[in-house]
Structures are given as structure tokens and as C-alpha cells.
Design a protein around this nucleic acid. Structure first.
Lengths: 133, 133
DNA sequence: GCCGTTACTTTCCTCTAGGTACCTACTATA
DNA sequence: TATAGTAGGTACCTAGAGGAAAGTAACGGC
């Protein structure tokens, strides 16, 4: 129970970087796929999300959803029914990330190829032995 | 030597999320502070970066810089002088991330307070015992 | 009376990112 | 002679994130 909702806290390495806190909140592991799924497909139940993000485990999904709920990016609705039913949806605050994600998607389509090419070049150079015998 | 330049590869959990590859490249640990420092203060030597990102270790800094170099976001210049001198600067591709970082900074100033408030509310509710028991 | 379902929780285990510490080559300087 | 300084490389170790699997409550159905 201790520290369940506590953020891992990556210390203060980001002192030099004003965007570090946001990165910590928005781009920690699994958060982008979850937010994307909630934003794209609307309100969903736990199992729907679990099935959509095929490789996530229930434990981690719970952790991330709690974190996102605590940060106000996701709204959780619990229905105390016979088989419990819980629904998750993106909050207004979470939806305000949309333009950011759009910018990211734009950069992706425009430059991801360049990154791949850079990697090919780098690996070719490395294999050619230009760096260290 | 095996897998030094190889990306950790977070498997394929991000199948549902088109921006996942970019997140992997741009927002993996330490990359944003490094890119920010290079973009803000221009070309720098290894030790300058090390001192600026106060808590990073030399080993990790080397790893991240290699990774960024391989991805074409950072340019490394080696001067084979008496005491070795290496300079790092942001590449054109890296500089193309500037608007993205700007969007991020904007969202930060606008909404970081709301996240903090949401956390306070959530923690207060949790302490009030409304959830379980 | 047992199974199935949901949304977890808990326990145990593994794996690896990252930290510590020490090593390199080369020279200037004291 | 010894020490400092640069830009790492390398070996060892630990903490912690994340995975697997089982447990839980509460009820409906067979």
C-alpha cells in the first residue's frame, strides 16, 4: 500500500530542462498508447483497453490508469454492479493534449524516415570500421 | 560490444499508437534535457554537458549521446588533439523538434498547475477513505 | 455446489537500466 | 615523479520496473 500512487520520481536530473515535468507526466511508459486509445475510441471498460493494448498486463494497466486518474488526465467511473463495471474516459485536461499529439504525429510522418536513414548510415559507418579500428 | 548502439526496443506494445516510435526516440530518459541543453547553449564539449546535467553519470551521458548521434539528432565532432576534445551540437533534424518542444512548454505553463491540483484532490479523497474501507 | 465474469490485488520472480568504481592514452605542469 | 585533465570503455552490482500467475468479492446461471 505504501507509495502505490506515488510517482517513481526520476530525481531532479531535469533541472536544466523546463519541459521535463511534462515529459514525466505525459510520456512515461504506456501513457501515450492509453491516452491515444481513450481519445480515439472514447469511453471504454478495463478489459477493452487491456485487449486493445495487446501486450500490457492487467497489473501495469491498473497502475498507469491510476496514475493518469491522479494526474487528472483520465476519468474513472465505477459502477458497483454484479460483475463490477468500470469505465475510463479521457478528461478535458487530457483532451487538451490533442494538439501536442498532433504536432508529434506530424513530426513523425515528416522525419521518422530521416531517423531511420541516419541509423542506417551510422551503422554502415560503424561496420566499415571508421570508428576505432 | 554487442548491442551497444542497439535501441532497448520496448517490444511492440505501441501497436495501437502511431506516435509511439517518436516517443521512443525523443522522450526516452535524459534525451530531452540533453537536446534542450544543446539547443539552448549551442555546441558544447562532453564535460560541459556533464556539468550542466548535474546528476547524470559519464557512462549514461555517453550512451545517450551515441544514441542521439545514431538517430541523427546530434552531431559529434572529434578533435584528435593532445587532451582529446569532442564537441556535440544539435543537428538540423534535432532542431526541427523545436516547435514540438515549444508546444510542450506551452502546455506545461498552461496546465501543469491543473495536474498538481488534480493530484492534491485525488490524494485528499484517498485519505478521506472514500475508496475502499 | 461449482463455474464464469470483472476488475482488480498480491505475491513472487526476472531482467535490465543505471550507478560505482576503476581502467585507458596522452600530454602539460608542478 | 607524480598529478591533473579529457573522453570515454569496462566490469560488477543493485534497485526497481514490469511480467506471470494465483487470489478475491460478489453474484447469476447451470
Amino acid at each position: 500500500m505504501t507509495g502505490d500512487t506515488a510517482r517513481p520520481r526520476t530525481a531532479d536530473p531535469e533541472l536544466a530542462c523546463p519541459i521535463a515535468p511534462v515529459v514525466d507526466i505525459v510520456f512515461s511508459r504506456w501513457t501515450t498508447p492509453i491516452l491515444w486509445a481513450l481519445n480515439e475510441y472514447g469511453r471504454q471498460r478495463f478489459v477493452e483497453l487491456e485487449r486493445r493494448l495487446t501486450t500490457i498486463t492487467a497489473k501495469v494497466l491498473t497502475q498507469r490508469l491510476r496514475q493518469l486518474e491522479r494526474d487528472g488526465l483520465v476519468v474513472r467511473t465505477y459502477h458497483p454492479e454484479v460483475p463490477p463495471r468500470v469505465e475510463y474516459e479521457i478528461s478535458e485536461l487530457g483532451r487538451s493534449l490533442a494538439p501536442l499529439f498532433a504536432t508529434l504525429a506530424d513530426w513523425s510522418t515528416a522525419n521518422l524516415g530521416k531517423v531511420d536513414q541516419a541509423r542506417l548510415d551510422y551503422d554502415a559507418q560503424a561496420r566499415a570500421g571508421s570508428r576505432r579500428s
